[in-house]
């Protein structure tokens, strides 16, 4: 049975439209305009235990809303969802003791206190036995190399260190399902790498189920075998990362390096000219045409080097987002 099972999940909000200007503001005293915003329009998703799934999508696509629905923080407008057999928005304690949510843009640790005080509070709230708490905390602080920072007030930590602390807080009760919303947002490359490394290791060791949203393709490429693209409140794609290119990009990028000073002017007949940096030229060519065009090119010009690549994933996804919205 799937550990996460989502069917036709929808969520819409009523939003008050604020008006500009003084007179409009006065009018707003007596009458308000609302618009319905559909954040999630019918998401279907099944995740098996032990999967590490990435949610991709442009801003406002409904990724975070979906995670919040699955955490039971907000109630849906329609549809059903179960996580580990629980309906999230019933917020049963048995459910809430078995998962965790980490949000990169919000912190739950007490700002003015050392992280260890917040951890102790978590221990009490989740009812973690003292010996087990200590063991888990030791392991996690070891792995994330933050043992010395436990006694420092959270407000004095760097963003990366704070994120590590937040992760520890979320993992102290050894959740079986973990929701990560932009866990590396705003971090520098090294801090991102550290977090990724930790997540991958932890997931492999513990075989927990993780749902992750991120803007950084590197997070996704490093961590997830399965990618779910959400845009406009709907699932647009569900499969492997490599599959995105097969499905959404019909093109290959061919890089040609011309021999000694040859600068032919009629290259656009081969395909879309993407970049010319003599003697190197990049051309986008429809997948099916690649063998034919390559053969012709090698016949007609003096070529020193050739490479054929898929277009960068970021570009494909950006194009895809653009099409959907």
């Amino acid at each position: 049975m799937a550990i996460i099972d989502v069917q036709e999940l929808t969520k819409s909000y009523r939003v008050y439209r604020k008006r500009e200007g003084l007179m409009e503001g006065v009018r707003g005293l007596f009458h308000r305009d609302y618009t319905e915003v559909e954040a999630v329009r019918g998401i279907n998703l099944r995740v098996e235990a032990g999967e590490f799934v990435a949610f991709l999508g442009p801003n406002g696509a409904g990724k975070t809303t979906t995670l919040k629905l699955l955490s039971g923080v907000i109630n849906p407008t329609g549809g059903t969802a179960t996580v580990m057999g629980f309906v999230p928005w019933q917020r049963q304690n048995e459910y809430r003791r078995r998962f965790a949510l980490v949000m990169g843009q919000k912190n739950q640790l007490w700002w003015d206190l050392p992280a260890q005080e917040s951890y102790r509070l978590h221990q009490q709230i989740y009812g973690v036995p003292a010996d087990r708490f200590q063991k888990t905390l030791d392991e996690l602080t070891d792995l994330l190399e933050v043992k010395d920072l436990l006694g420092q007030p959270v407000r004095e930590l760097s963003l990366g260190e704070r994120m590590k602390m937040e992760l520890i807080a979320a993992l102290l009760h050894s959740p079986e399902v973990l929701f990560l919303d932009e866990p590396t947002i705003g971090l520098d490359v090294i801090a991102q790498h550290n977090i990724q490394r930790f997540l991958r290791f932890y997931q492999e060791q513990r075989k927990i189920t993780i749902l992750l949203t991120s803007h950084y393709m590197k997070d996704v490429a490093a961590l997830c075998k399965r990618v779910v693209i959400v845009a406009g409140g709907l699932v647009q794609y569900d499969g492997s990362l490599a599959g995105i290119i097969d499905k959404f990009s019909g093109k290959k990028i061919v890089t040609l390096q011309f021999a000694d000073g040859d600068r032919p002017a009629d290259l656009d007949r081969l395909g879309t000219l993407l970049d010319t940096h003599w003697p190197k030229v990049k051309i986008g060519i429809t997948r099916a045409d690649v063998p034919r065009v390559l053969a012709e090119t090698l016949r007609d010009y003096a070529i020193e080097d050739v490479s054929v690549e898929d277009p960068p994933l970021e570009d494909v996804i950006a194009d895809l987002f653009h099409q959907v919205s």
Partner: peptide, 20 residues
């Protein structure tokens, strides 16, 4: 054919966690 996006090399962590 090259990989779509260059996979990030992740240095394995030495420590192992205790059993789930």
């Amino acid at each position: 054919m090259t990989e779509p996006a260059e996979p990030q090399r992740i240095t394995p962590l030495r420590e192992t966690l205790t059993e789930p």
